[in-house]
Design a protein around this nucleic acid. Structure first.
Length: 459
RNA sequence: GGUGGAGUGGCUGAGCGGCCCAAAGCAACAGCCUGCAAAGCUGUCAACCCACGGGUUCAAAUCCCGUCUCCACCUCCA
Protein backbone atom coordinates (compact mmCIF):
# COMPACT_ATOMS: atom_id res chain seq x y z
CA UNK A 1 0.00 0.00 0.00
CA UNK A 2 1.22 3.43 -0.83
CA UNK A 3 1.18 6.52 1.30
CA UNK A 4 -1.85 8.71 0.76
CA UNK A 5 -1.99 12.28 1.97
CA UNK A 6 -4.85 14.73 2.03
CA UNK A 7 -3.96 17.65 -0.19
CA UNK A 8 -5.92 20.62 1.04
CA UNK A 9 -5.60 22.44 -2.27
CA UNK A 10 -7.37 19.78 -4.31
CA UNK A 11 -9.32 18.76 -1.18
CA UNK A 12 -8.82 15.07 -1.71
CA UNK A 13 -6.66 12.15 -0.71
CA UNK A 14 -3.87 11.70 -3.20
CA UNK A 15 -1.28 8.97 -3.50
CA UNK A 16 1.99 10.55 -2.51
CA UNK A 17 4.67 10.44 -5.14
CA UNK A 18 7.72 12.66 -4.77
CA UNK A 19 8.84 14.85 -7.65
CA UNK A 20 12.25 13.19 -7.45
CA UNK A 21 12.18 9.45 -6.91
CA UNK A 22 13.35 8.45 -3.46
CA UNK A 23 13.67 11.98 -2.17
CA UNK A 24 11.16 14.27 -0.49
CA UNK A 25 11.41 18.01 -0.05
CA UNK A 26 9.15 19.69 2.45
CA UNK A 27 8.65 23.17 3.80
CA UNK A 28 6.88 23.74 7.08
CA UNK A 29 5.85 27.07 8.51
CA UNK A 30 7.61 27.48 11.81
CA UNK A 31 6.77 29.93 14.55
CA UNK A 32 6.74 33.68 14.66
CA UNK A 33 8.90 34.13 17.70
CA UNK A 34 6.69 36.62 19.46
CA UNK A 35 5.93 34.67 22.65
CA UNK A 36 6.52 31.27 24.21
CA UNK A 37 5.02 28.20 22.55
CA UNK A 38 1.75 26.61 23.56
CA UNK A 39 0.25 23.23 22.75
CA UNK A 40 -0.89 24.28 19.31
CA UNK A 41 2.60 25.15 18.11
CA UNK A 42 3.93 21.92 19.50
CA UNK A 43 1.26 19.89 17.76
CA UNK A 44 2.00 21.46 14.42
CA UNK A 45 5.73 20.84 14.68
CA UNK A 46 5.06 17.31 15.84
CA UNK A 47 2.75 16.45 12.94
CA UNK A 48 5.47 17.18 10.41
CA UNK A 49 8.08 15.52 12.57
CA UNK A 50 6.08 12.31 12.44
CA UNK A 51 5.56 12.73 8.72
CA UNK A 52 9.30 13.10 8.24
CA UNK A 53 9.96 10.05 10.39
CA UNK A 54 7.43 8.01 8.45
CA UNK A 55 8.84 9.08 5.11
CA UNK A 56 12.31 8.10 6.28
CA UNK A 57 11.02 4.81 7.61
CA UNK A 58 9.55 4.31 4.14
CA UNK A 59 13.03 4.66 2.63
CA UNK A 60 12.86 8.21 1.38
CA UNK A 61 15.53 10.73 2.13
CA UNK A 62 13.97 13.95 3.32
CA UNK A 63 15.01 17.57 3.11
CA UNK A 64 12.94 19.54 5.54
CA UNK A 65 12.88 23.29 5.97
CA UNK A 66 11.21 24.88 8.96
CA UNK A 67 11.58 28.62 9.09
CA UNK A 68 11.68 31.05 11.95
CA UNK A 69 9.81 34.30 11.46
CA UNK A 70 12.01 36.58 13.51
CA UNK A 71 10.82 39.92 12.16
CA UNK A 72 7.17 40.84 12.39
CA UNK A 73 4.83 43.44 13.87
CA UNK A 74 4.23 41.36 16.96
CA UNK A 75 7.91 40.69 17.54
CA UNK A 76 8.60 44.42 17.59
CA UNK A 77 5.60 45.16 19.80
CA UNK A 78 6.26 42.39 22.29
CA UNK A 79 9.95 43.25 22.54
CA UNK A 80 8.89 46.57 24.09
CA UNK A 81 11.90 48.64 25.04
CA UNK A 82 14.29 45.75 24.55
CA UNK A 83 16.32 45.03 21.43
CA UNK A 84 13.89 43.05 19.33
CA UNK A 85 16.65 40.82 17.94
CA UNK A 86 17.68 39.75 21.39
CA UNK A 87 14.03 39.23 22.32
CA UNK A 88 13.39 37.11 19.21
CA UNK A 89 16.40 34.93 19.96
CA UNK A 90 15.20 34.40 23.46
CA UNK A 91 11.73 33.35 22.36
CA UNK A 92 13.18 31.13 19.69
CA UNK A 93 15.20 29.38 22.36
CA UNK A 94 12.02 28.52 24.24
CA UNK A 95 10.66 26.92 21.08
CA UNK A 96 13.86 24.99 20.47
CA UNK A 97 13.86 23.83 24.04
CA UNK A 98 10.30 22.53 23.80
CA UNK A 99 10.96 20.89 20.43
CA UNK A 100 14.00 19.15 21.80
CA UNK A 101 12.23 17.93 24.91
CA UNK A 102 9.41 16.60 22.75
CA UNK A 103 11.96 14.72 20.66
CA UNK A 104 11.13 16.67 17.53
CA UNK A 105 14.01 16.16 15.13
CA UNK A 106 15.98 19.10 13.86
CA UNK A 107 14.90 20.10 10.36
CA UNK A 108 17.52 20.03 7.63
CA UNK A 109 17.39 23.82 7.39
CA UNK A 110 16.14 26.32 9.94
CA UNK A 111 16.29 29.65 8.15
CA UNK A 112 15.51 32.98 9.76
CA UNK A 113 13.59 35.57 7.81
CA UNK A 114 16.14 38.25 8.63
CA UNK A 115 18.85 36.19 6.89
CA UNK A 116 17.00 36.19 3.57
CA UNK A 117 16.04 39.78 2.89
CA UNK A 118 18.02 39.67 -0.37
CA UNK A 119 16.02 36.68 -1.59
CA UNK A 120 12.84 38.53 -0.81
CA UNK A 121 13.90 41.66 -2.63
CA UNK A 122 14.79 39.61 -5.68
CA UNK A 123 11.44 37.87 -5.65
CA UNK A 124 9.50 41.12 -5.22
CA UNK A 125 11.42 42.79 -8.03
CA UNK A 126 10.46 39.94 -10.28
CA UNK A 127 6.81 40.31 -9.29
CA UNK A 128 6.90 44.02 -10.05
CA UNK A 129 8.51 43.36 -13.43
CA UNK A 130 5.80 40.84 -14.23
CA UNK A 131 3.09 43.28 -13.21
CA UNK A 132 1.88 41.44 -10.14
CA UNK A 133 3.21 43.84 -7.54
CA UNK A 134 3.57 47.58 -7.17
CA UNK A 135 5.11 50.20 -4.96
CA UNK A 136 2.56 52.11 -2.89
CA UNK A 137 0.68 54.82 -4.70
CA UNK A 138 1.48 57.23 -1.85
CA UNK A 139 5.19 56.94 -2.74
CA UNK A 140 6.17 55.20 0.48
CA UNK A 141 8.37 52.11 0.56
CA UNK A 142 5.31 49.93 0.94
CA UNK A 143 5.10 47.29 -1.75
CA UNK A 144 1.93 45.31 -2.37
CA UNK A 145 0.91 42.25 -4.27
CA UNK A 146 -1.68 43.14 -6.90
CA UNK A 147 -4.40 40.59 -6.30
CA UNK A 148 -6.48 41.86 -9.22
CA UNK A 149 -3.61 40.98 -11.55
CA UNK A 150 -3.59 37.34 -10.55
CA UNK A 151 -6.69 35.48 -11.72
CA UNK A 152 -5.89 32.41 -9.62
CA UNK A 153 -5.93 34.35 -6.39
CA UNK A 154 -8.10 32.37 -3.95
CA UNK A 155 -7.36 28.99 -5.51
CA UNK A 156 -5.94 27.48 -2.37
CA UNK A 157 -8.93 28.27 -0.19
CA UNK A 158 -11.57 28.19 -2.89
CA UNK A 159 -12.57 31.78 -2.40
CA UNK A 160 -13.52 34.51 -4.79
CA UNK A 161 -12.08 37.99 -4.47
CA UNK A 162 -15.50 39.63 -4.35
CA UNK A 163 -16.46 37.59 -1.29
CA UNK A 164 -13.38 38.53 0.67
CA UNK A 165 -13.53 41.13 3.35
CA UNK A 166 -10.02 42.48 2.89
CA UNK A 167 -8.06 44.87 5.02
CA UNK A 168 -10.26 47.19 7.01
CA UNK A 169 -7.70 49.72 8.17
CA UNK A 170 -6.20 52.56 6.15
CA UNK A 171 -4.93 51.67 2.72
CA UNK A 172 -1.26 52.71 3.10
CA UNK A 173 -1.23 53.12 -0.65
CA UNK A 174 -3.07 49.96 -1.66
CA UNK A 175 -5.06 49.76 -4.87
CA UNK A 176 -7.42 47.25 -3.35
CA UNK A 177 -8.17 46.23 0.25
CA UNK A 178 -7.30 42.65 -0.76
CA UNK A 179 -3.75 43.52 -1.75
CA UNK A 180 -1.25 42.42 0.85
CA UNK A 181 2.11 43.83 1.83
CA UNK A 182 5.31 42.38 0.42
CA UNK A 183 7.41 45.04 2.08
CA UNK A 184 6.34 47.43 4.80
CA UNK A 185 7.85 50.91 4.86
CA UNK A 186 9.93 51.77 7.88
CA UNK A 187 7.99 53.67 10.52
CA UNK A 188 9.78 56.38 12.52
CA UNK A 189 8.66 54.88 15.82
CA UNK A 190 10.20 51.52 14.96
CA UNK A 191 13.89 50.78 15.58
CA UNK A 192 16.23 51.38 12.65
CA UNK A 193 17.60 47.90 13.11
CA UNK A 194 14.23 46.67 11.92
CA UNK A 195 14.59 48.28 8.50
CA UNK A 196 16.57 47.25 5.45
CA UNK A 197 17.62 49.19 2.38
CA UNK A 198 15.50 48.10 -0.54
CA UNK A 199 15.00 49.51 -4.04
CA UNK A 200 11.83 51.14 -2.68
CA UNK A 201 13.35 52.70 0.42
CA UNK A 202 13.83 51.60 4.02
CA UNK A 203 11.47 48.75 4.74
CA UNK A 204 10.98 45.39 6.40
CA UNK A 205 9.47 42.33 4.78
CA UNK A 206 5.86 41.26 5.09
CA UNK A 207 5.18 37.88 6.59
CA UNK A 208 4.06 36.04 3.48
CA UNK A 209 6.98 36.87 1.20
CA UNK A 210 9.39 35.45 3.76
CA UNK A 211 8.18 31.90 3.28
CA UNK A 212 8.03 32.12 -0.50
CA UNK A 213 11.60 33.38 -0.63
CA UNK A 214 13.02 30.90 1.84
CA UNK A 215 11.25 27.95 0.28
CA UNK A 216 12.68 28.93 -3.09
CA UNK A 217 16.13 29.47 -1.66
CA UNK A 218 16.38 25.99 -0.19
CA UNK A 219 14.04 23.90 -2.31
CA UNK A 220 13.87 25.61 -5.66
CA UNK A 221 10.85 26.47 -7.76
CA UNK A 222 8.98 23.30 -6.86
CA UNK A 223 8.95 20.90 -3.96
CA UNK A 224 6.79 18.12 -2.59
CA UNK A 225 5.02 19.17 0.55
CA UNK A 226 4.11 22.43 2.19
CA UNK A 227 2.79 22.09 5.72
CA UNK A 228 1.40 24.32 8.41
CA UNK A 229 -1.46 24.95 10.77
CA UNK A 230 -5.00 25.19 9.46
CA UNK A 231 -5.18 28.79 10.59
CA UNK A 232 -2.41 29.65 8.14
CA UNK A 233 -4.39 28.54 5.09
CA UNK A 234 -5.68 32.03 4.62
CA UNK A 235 -4.24 34.48 4.19
CA UNK A 236 -0.70 33.23 4.70
CA UNK A 237 -0.57 30.20 2.42
CA UNK A 238 -2.96 31.63 -0.12
CA UNK A 239 -0.63 34.59 -0.44
CA UNK A 240 2.48 32.48 -0.59
CA UNK A 241 0.97 30.49 -3.40
CA UNK A 242 -0.09 33.62 -5.26
CA UNK A 243 3.36 35.21 -4.99
CA UNK A 244 5.31 32.17 -5.95
CA UNK A 245 3.11 31.06 -8.80
CA UNK A 246 2.80 34.61 -10.10
CA UNK A 247 6.60 34.66 -10.15
CA UNK A 248 6.49 31.57 -12.34
CA UNK A 249 7.19 28.86 -9.77
CA UNK A 250 5.23 25.66 -9.47
CA UNK A 251 5.70 25.72 -5.70
CA UNK A 252 4.21 22.95 -3.53
CA UNK A 253 2.85 19.72 -4.93
CA UNK A 254 0.95 18.84 -1.75
CA UNK A 255 -0.52 21.23 0.79
CA UNK A 256 -0.95 19.78 4.26
CA UNK A 257 -2.80 21.50 7.05
CA UNK A 258 -2.94 20.23 10.57
CA UNK A 259 -6.05 20.89 12.65
CA UNK A 260 -5.82 22.90 15.81
CA UNK A 261 -5.65 22.19 19.49
CA UNK A 262 -8.86 23.28 21.17
CA UNK A 263 -9.76 23.84 24.75
CA UNK A 264 -13.41 23.44 25.69
CA UNK A 265 -14.09 23.22 21.98
CA UNK A 266 -12.49 26.55 21.16
CA UNK A 267 -9.25 27.20 19.40
CA UNK A 268 -6.19 27.64 21.55
CA UNK A 269 -4.36 30.71 20.36
CA UNK A 270 -2.11 33.52 21.31
CA UNK A 271 -4.73 36.09 20.48
CA UNK A 272 -7.39 34.42 22.63
CA UNK A 273 -4.95 34.05 25.48
CA UNK A 274 -6.19 30.56 26.33
CA UNK A 275 -2.94 28.80 25.63
CA UNK A 276 -1.78 26.07 27.97
CA UNK A 277 1.84 26.68 28.81
CA UNK A 278 4.69 24.26 28.97
CA UNK A 279 4.82 24.68 32.75
CA UNK A 280 1.20 23.60 33.13
CA UNK A 281 1.81 20.55 30.99
CA UNK A 282 4.89 19.24 32.69
CA UNK A 283 3.03 19.29 35.99
CA UNK A 284 0.56 16.78 34.58
CA UNK A 285 2.99 14.41 32.91
CA UNK A 286 6.32 13.79 31.26
CA UNK A 287 7.38 15.10 27.86
CA UNK A 288 6.80 11.62 26.57
CA UNK A 289 3.20 11.84 27.73
CA UNK A 290 2.80 15.22 26.08
CA UNK A 291 4.12 13.83 22.82
CA UNK A 292 1.86 10.80 23.12
CA UNK A 293 -1.18 12.96 23.76
CA UNK A 294 -0.43 15.29 20.87
CA UNK A 295 -0.29 12.24 18.63
CA UNK A 296 -3.52 10.75 19.92
CA UNK A 297 -5.76 12.36 17.31
CA UNK A 298 -5.30 12.17 13.56
CA UNK A 299 -3.64 15.37 12.39
CA UNK A 300 -6.69 16.70 10.53
CA UNK A 301 -8.94 16.29 13.56
CA UNK A 302 -9.19 18.84 16.30
CA UNK A 303 -7.59 17.77 19.51
CA UNK A 304 -9.43 18.92 22.58
CA UNK A 305 -7.44 19.56 25.71
CA UNK A 306 -8.82 18.93 29.15
CA UNK A 307 -7.26 18.70 32.56
CA UNK A 308 -7.00 14.94 32.48
CA UNK A 309 -5.54 14.76 28.95
CA UNK A 310 -1.87 14.56 29.80
CA UNK A 311 -2.45 12.42 32.85
CA UNK A 312 -4.42 9.86 30.83
CA UNK A 313 -1.76 9.89 28.14
CA UNK A 314 0.90 9.26 30.76
CA UNK A 315 -0.95 6.15 31.94
CA UNK A 316 -1.29 4.87 28.39
CA UNK A 317 2.34 5.56 27.61
CA UNK A 318 3.47 3.90 30.85
CA UNK A 319 1.86 0.69 29.63
CA UNK A 320 4.08 0.68 26.59
CA UNK A 321 7.17 1.79 28.47
CA UNK A 322 6.45 -0.71 31.25
CA UNK A 323 6.27 -3.53 28.75
CA UNK A 324 9.64 -2.64 27.26
CA UNK A 325 11.19 -2.13 30.66
CA UNK A 326 10.19 -5.50 31.96
CA UNK A 327 11.12 -7.43 28.85
CA UNK A 328 14.18 -5.63 27.57
CA UNK A 329 17.61 -4.89 28.90
CA UNK A 330 18.58 -2.32 26.37
CA UNK A 331 17.05 0.84 25.09
CA UNK A 332 18.83 0.42 21.80
CA UNK A 333 16.50 0.29 18.87
CA UNK A 334 17.12 -0.26 15.23
CA UNK A 335 14.46 0.95 12.90
CA UNK A 336 13.50 -1.99 10.81
CA UNK A 337 10.45 -1.89 8.60
CA UNK A 338 10.41 -5.68 8.66
CA UNK A 339 9.28 -5.51 12.24
CA UNK A 340 6.44 -3.09 11.71
CA UNK A 341 3.08 -4.89 11.76
CA UNK A 342 0.96 -4.55 8.64
CA UNK A 343 -1.82 -2.79 10.58
CA UNK A 344 0.67 -0.17 11.71
CA UNK A 345 1.96 0.48 8.21
CA UNK A 346 -1.52 0.63 6.77
CA UNK A 347 -2.59 3.14 9.39
CA UNK A 348 0.44 5.37 8.81
CA UNK A 349 0.03 5.18 5.05
CA UNK A 350 -3.59 6.26 5.38
CA UNK A 351 -2.90 9.97 5.71
CA UNK A 352 -0.88 9.43 8.88
CA UNK A 353 -3.54 7.77 10.98
CA UNK A 354 -1.48 7.79 14.13
CA UNK A 355 -4.40 6.79 16.41
CA UNK A 356 -4.80 3.67 14.28
CA UNK A 357 -1.06 3.07 14.53
CA UNK A 358 -1.23 3.45 18.29
CA UNK A 359 -4.02 0.87 18.37
CA UNK A 360 -1.72 -1.57 16.59
CA UNK A 361 1.02 -0.71 19.05
CA UNK A 362 -1.15 -1.39 22.08
CA UNK A 363 -2.38 -4.62 20.60
CA UNK A 364 1.22 -5.81 20.31
CA UNK A 365 1.97 -4.71 23.86
CA UNK A 366 -0.89 -6.81 25.16
CA UNK A 367 0.15 -9.80 23.08
CA UNK A 368 3.70 -9.35 24.32
CA UNK A 369 2.65 -9.18 27.96
CA UNK A 370 0.63 -12.35 27.52
CA UNK A 371 3.61 -14.06 25.90
CA UNK A 372 5.82 -12.84 28.73
CA UNK A 373 3.54 -14.30 31.37
CA UNK A 374 3.18 -17.61 29.57
CA UNK A 375 6.94 -17.80 28.90
CA UNK A 376 6.43 -17.96 25.16
CA UNK A 377 9.91 -16.70 24.29
CA UNK A 378 9.55 -16.76 20.53
CA UNK A 379 6.31 -14.84 20.58
CA UNK A 380 7.64 -12.42 23.16
CA UNK A 381 10.76 -11.68 21.18
CA UNK A 382 8.67 -10.97 18.10
CA UNK A 383 6.40 -8.60 20.00
CA UNK A 384 9.33 -6.77 21.58
CA UNK A 385 10.91 -6.15 18.19
CA UNK A 386 7.63 -4.94 16.77
CA UNK A 387 6.90 -2.64 19.68
CA UNK A 388 10.40 -1.20 19.58
CA UNK A 389 10.13 -0.47 15.89
CA UNK A 390 6.75 1.22 16.24
CA UNK A 391 7.84 3.24 19.24
CA UNK A 392 10.86 4.35 17.26
CA UNK A 393 8.87 5.47 14.23
CA UNK A 394 6.56 7.49 16.46
CA UNK A 395 9.53 9.08 18.17
CA UNK A 396 8.52 7.81 21.59
CA UNK A 397 11.79 6.00 22.20
CA UNK A 398 13.09 8.69 24.49
CA UNK A 399 10.26 8.08 26.92
CA UNK A 400 11.95 4.97 28.19
CA UNK A 401 15.55 5.87 27.55
CA UNK A 402 15.69 8.96 29.66
CA UNK A 403 17.33 8.33 33.03
CA UNK A 404 16.13 11.37 34.91
CA UNK A 405 17.35 10.30 38.31
CA UNK A 406 20.71 11.13 39.83
CA UNK A 407 23.08 8.35 40.78
CA UNK A 408 23.01 9.44 44.38
CA UNK A 409 19.26 9.13 44.62
CA UNK A 410 19.36 5.83 42.79
CA UNK A 411 21.77 4.44 45.34
CA UNK A 412 19.67 5.70 48.20
CA UNK A 413 16.50 4.17 46.79
CA UNK A 414 18.09 0.84 46.02
CA UNK A 415 19.57 0.67 49.46
CA UNK A 416 16.14 1.21 51.01
CA UNK A 417 14.61 -1.40 48.76
CA UNK A 418 17.23 -3.91 49.87
CA UNK A 419 16.53 -3.13 53.52
CA UNK A 420 12.85 -3.62 52.90
CA UNK A 421 13.52 -6.90 51.19
CA UNK A 422 15.53 -8.10 54.17
CA UNK A 423 12.80 -7.02 56.56
CA UNK A 424 10.22 -8.92 54.55
CA UNK A 425 12.36 -12.04 54.62
CA UNK A 426 12.58 -11.68 58.41
CA UNK A 427 8.79 -11.20 58.43
CA UNK A 428 9.28 -7.81 60.03
CA UNK A 429 6.38 -6.32 58.12
CA UNK A 430 6.09 -3.24 60.29
CA UNK A 431 9.66 -2.29 59.33
CA UNK A 432 8.98 -3.14 55.67
CA UNK A 433 5.91 -0.93 55.60
CA UNK A 434 7.80 1.89 57.22
CA UNK A 435 10.44 1.78 54.52
CA UNK A 436 7.69 1.70 51.92
CA UNK A 437 6.33 4.93 53.37
CA UNK A 438 9.77 6.51 53.30
CA UNK A 439 10.14 5.66 49.65
CA UNK A 440 6.73 7.08 48.86
CA UNK A 441 7.75 10.31 50.48
CA UNK A 442 10.75 10.41 48.19
CA UNK A 443 8.31 10.25 45.30
CA UNK A 444 9.21 6.71 44.37
CA UNK A 445 6.66 4.24 43.05
CA UNK A 446 7.50 0.63 43.81
CA UNK A 447 6.72 -2.28 41.55
CA UNK A 448 7.05 -5.59 43.33
CA UNK A 449 7.62 -8.18 40.67
CA UNK A 450 8.09 -11.89 41.11
CA UNK A 451 11.72 -11.84 42.25
CA UNK A 452 12.80 -8.24 42.04
CA UNK A 453 11.40 -4.88 43.00
CA UNK A 454 11.36 -2.32 40.24
CA UNK A 455 10.76 1.30 40.87
CA UNK A 456 10.20 4.58 39.17
CA UNK A 457 10.31 8.17 40.15
CA UNK A 458 6.94 9.94 40.28
CA UNK A 459 5.67 7.19 38.07
C1' G B 1 -22.61 36.92 3.30
C1' G B 2 -18.54 33.43 1.43
C1' U B 3 -15.30 28.93 2.26
C1' G B 4 -14.09 24.50 4.81
C1' G B 5 -14.80 20.90 8.83
C1' A B 6 -17.34 18.23 12.78
C1' G B 7 -21.42 15.69 15.74
C1' U B 8 -19.48 7.79 17.42
C1' G B 9 -19.73 4.47 24.60
C1' G B 10 -18.72 7.96 31.28
C1' C B 11 -14.21 10.66 28.78
C1' U B 12 -10.39 10.85 24.65
C1' G B 13 -10.62 8.98 19.83
C1' A B 14 -10.26 5.50 15.04
C1' G B 15 -13.44 3.62 11.30
C1' C B 16 -16.06 6.74 6.05
C1' G B 17 -20.58 1.21 1.64
C1' G B 18 -20.24 -5.41 3.40
C1' C B 19 -14.24 -7.85 7.59
C1' C B 20 -18.74 -2.94 12.44
C1' C B 21 -23.33 -7.39 16.69
C1' A B 22 -17.85 -0.05 15.84
C1' A B 23 -10.26 -0.22 16.91
C1' A B 24 -7.23 1.63 20.72
C1' G B 25 -6.43 4.38 25.24
C1' C B 26 -8.43 6.45 29.88
C1' A B 27 -12.03 5.63 33.67
C1' A B 28 -14.95 1.60 35.99
C1' C B 29 -15.52 -3.50 37.62
C1' A B 30 -13.45 -8.56 38.37
C1' G B 31 -9.39 -12.07 38.65
C1' C B 32 -4.04 -13.08 39.07
C1' C B 33 0.10 -11.44 41.86
C1' U B 34 1.20 -9.75 47.27
C1' G B 35 2.31 -10.87 54.29
C1' C B 36 -1.36 -6.80 53.21
C1' A B 37 -1.13 -3.05 49.67
C1' A B 38 0.47 -0.24 45.60
C1' A B 39 2.26 -0.98 40.88
C1' G B 40 1.93 -4.48 37.05
C1' C B 41 -0.57 -8.13 34.11
C1' U B 42 -5.11 -10.47 32.29
C1' G B 43 -10.25 -10.29 31.55
C1' U B 44 -15.21 -7.80 31.42
C1' C B 45 -17.57 -3.41 29.81
C1' A B 46 -21.25 0.17 23.15
C1' A B 47 -28.71 -4.26 22.45
C1' C B 48 -34.36 0.09 20.89
C1' C B 49 -27.00 0.40 17.13
C1' C B 50 -22.76 5.94 15.45
C1' A B 51 -26.97 14.26 16.41
C1' C B 52 -32.23 13.98 14.38
C1' G B 53 -35.86 12.91 10.17
C1' G B 54 -36.34 10.94 5.37
C1' G B 55 -34.09 8.39 1.03
C1' U B 56 -30.70 5.21 -2.19
C1' U B 57 -28.80 0.04 -1.90
C1' C B 58 -29.18 -7.01 -1.50
C1' A B 59 -26.15 -4.23 2.32
C1' A B 60 -25.00 2.45 5.57
C1' A B 61 -21.87 5.01 11.22
C1' U B 62 -20.07 5.20 6.18
C1' C B 63 -23.65 7.68 -0.01
C1' C B 64 -27.92 11.47 -1.06
C1' C B 65 -31.70 15.22 0.72
C1' G B 66 -33.56 18.02 4.80
C1' U B 67 -33.22 19.77 10.04
C1' C B 68 -30.59 21.00 14.52
C1' U B 69 -26.01 21.99 17.10
C1' C B 70 -20.86 23.16 17.18
C1' C B 71 -16.01 24.72 15.28
C1' A B 72 -12.38 27.04 12.02
C1' C B 73 -11.02 30.67 8.17
C1' C B 74 -12.41 35.30 5.39
C1' U B 75 -7.61 40.68 10.63
C1' C B 76 -2.14 38.61 13.56
C1' C B 77 -2.17 33.37 15.13
C1' A B 78 0.60 26.34 14.39
Amino acid sequence: MALELFDSKSQELRVFKPLTAGHVEMYVCGPTVQSAPHLGHLRSALVYDVLKRWLEASDYTVTMVRNVTDIDDKVLVNAGVRDWREFAKEVEATFDDAYQKLNILEPTHKPHATEHIEDMVTLVQKLITLGHAYQAEDGSANVFFDTASWANYGELTNQKLENMEGETDASHGRKSPNDFALFKAHKPEEPETAAWKTPWGLARPGWHIECSAMAKHFLGESFDIHGGGLDLRFPHHENELAQSSAAGDRFANFWLHNALVTINGNKMSKSLGNGVSVEDLTKAGSWGAIRYWLLSAQYRSNLDYSESSIRDAQTALDRIVGFLNRTTNTGQVQIDMQHLPAEFKEAMDADLNVPGALAALHERVRAGNTAFDSKDEAKLSECVEQVKAMVHVLGLTFAYQEPLISEELTRQVEDLIQQRHDAKLAKDFARADQIRLELEELGVTLKDMKDVTMWSFNG
